[in-house]
Design a protein around this nucleic acid. Structure first.
Lengths: 297, 297
DNA sequence: CAAATAGTGTCTTTGAGACATTATGCG
DNA sequence: CGCATAATGTCTCAAAGACACTATTTG
């Protein structure tokens, strides 16, 4: 088998043996994981169903930059692992959480998103059921807490152009954990013309959220809201046994919109299979427990 | 305003002034762009409509590694730009193409995907209408060509597990440009269990496609096929004026499936607005020309 | 029994699939 | 005139929205 040589007369084998990485600059590559769960809060009285809240896991920063702010769990990628493996490793190291659903979200690369140096972030979306996970006691002085997520759309303006349009939307994100209240405002500019699409995101206000993580969290929520409607991704938020009403509440919390019971069951009960188990001691009619059905897509 | 100090007694300002990037290893960050267009091929006779083909733009590699193979246009990211800006810049430099639709696809990070050194690739999906673009004459000895894309699913096996399932799908990709025929086979393993999701991709056969680009191309096509059904993304492949039959052909080529005319028009004509112009000299009834309608989403 | 939720029935609306029918310019 | 495509009508079927009604358990 003949070997092709390049303009220097080198075969590929020789080229690689002599290869020196160029001296151009390289970025640091971080991973950051937005891990969602839905948790029950206190029940109002013995008859009513407990309420649920959407939560994400944040870690308090113990060093500069953004010291004292709260950040997504994450860290730097090692040369012998993929970004996904790094996300899994960091999540386990920092919070003790493992064996959960994970998908790549987006790579953020604005040159000065990290004030220290050139750092890109490959972000991941993770989902866990609150029963199945337990936070490890903060081993190396790291404080990890679940924050309630409250997203709001606070304003929108649309400008029509002759070859497209510009839409500016302002989102407000509130993150609450006991007395700790974090918030941020992200302004999204979408410019669509016949020359292409241009998205710009500015963090116009930020209280206690590290780096550009407010934006990453909003992006993750957007993805979750989109995918929940046409995949079974929401089942990753459920424990092994759950009622269809539980499942409906999860959809309602994520979408921020009430669902009609009959229509909801028609559509999403195919993702589940009934079991023999029933709820009890609830102050009202018992409910059947379902579990995940593995649908081949 | 008080300033928080860290365990070394440094304020954030002092910390950043003294900050030295750690000596841990950093990856190179490349961008690679899968740019699709739909081109007309010769018409069989004066009456029949011309046929269309899905094409992507590839560049012949003039140096190691993969010398003589064909690669996606792309290059390395500079420290003062985002990955998206890098994708736009490289596309223009290497092919002369500009002002087109672009969206981020996925970041590939398998440690040895590039034999030279640790290189991640942030990939982009681009769409262009074939009338609006012209390849610049290969300025620095680079050869850029449009290849017809022929994707096939050649096999699938599903194994049910007690806590999930495993699905293995084999895809074959053929890329054709005149006498040049490239091909690759990618095996996708999807393992879904209650412990999460795991996707693995192996390139089991490769003829003339550089790096892991066969996989990136298949991923881009999958994204395009998904989004075409619920967005107006396909209009980025159309010239300013087009018939609804033209648009239907584009959908058929991308989806690899015939569409029913009446149903297609009901669904997708809302993405367009009629003009006064008509086709002519076609050997059959003239057709109305439409153009893109800017829908605010 | 009252409160609260569980679970189902059904009428309407919407949209896609399937196929048929009519329209029209060109050689 | 006949070819090939343009454009629309209509019947059917599936799914979602809206709302009502019945069923059960516990204090």
């Amino acid at each position: 088998m003949e070997e092709t040589t390049d303009i220097n007369g080198l075969t590929e084998r020789k080229f690689l043996a002599n290869y020196k990485a160029g001296d151009y600059e390289r970025p640091s590559m971080a991973v950051d994981t937005v891990i969602f769960t839905v948790m029950q809060t206190k029940e109002a009285n013995y008859r009513k169903l407990p309420e649920k809240e959407l939560k994400i896991l944040l870690i308090k920063r113990g060093g500069h930059p953004y010291i004292g702010s709260w950040a997504l769990p994450g860290g730097f990628v090692d040369p012998d692992e993929t970004t996904e493996q790094a996300a899994i490793r960091e999540l386990k190291e920092e919070t003790g959480v493992e064996n959960i659903y994970l998908e790549q979200l987006y790579t953020f690369s604005e040159p000065h998103r990290d004030p220290r140096t050139w750092v890109m972030s490959c972000s991941y979306l993770a989902l866990a059921d609150s029963d199945g996970i337990s936070l490890r006691a903060g081993d190396d002085a790291r404080q990890a807490e679940w924050f309630t997520v409250r997203p709001y759309t606070v304003g929108q303006s649309i400008r029509k152009l002759d070859n497209g349009f510009e839409k500016i939307t302002e989102y407000r994100l509130e993150l609450i954990c006991g007395d700790i209240k974090l918030s941020g405002i992200v302004r999204h500019t979408l410019l669509r013309t016949d020359k292409g699409v241009k998205n710009t995101y500015e963090i116009t206000e930020n209280n206690g959220i590290a780096f550009d993580h407010a934006r990453i969290i909003l992006y993750a929520l957007e993805r979750l809201r989109g995918k929940i409607k046409y995949t079974d991704i929401a089942l990753n938020l459920m424990p092994e046994y759950f009622t269809l009403t539980d499942l409906q509440r999860v959809y309602e919390i994520i979408l921020g919109k009430e669902q009609i019971k009959a229509a909801f069951r028609r559509k999403y009960s195919v993702l589940t299979e009934p079991t023999d188990k029933m709820t009890s001691d609830a102050g009202h009619r018992p409910s059947r427990l379902y579990r995940r059905k593995w649908l081949i897509d």
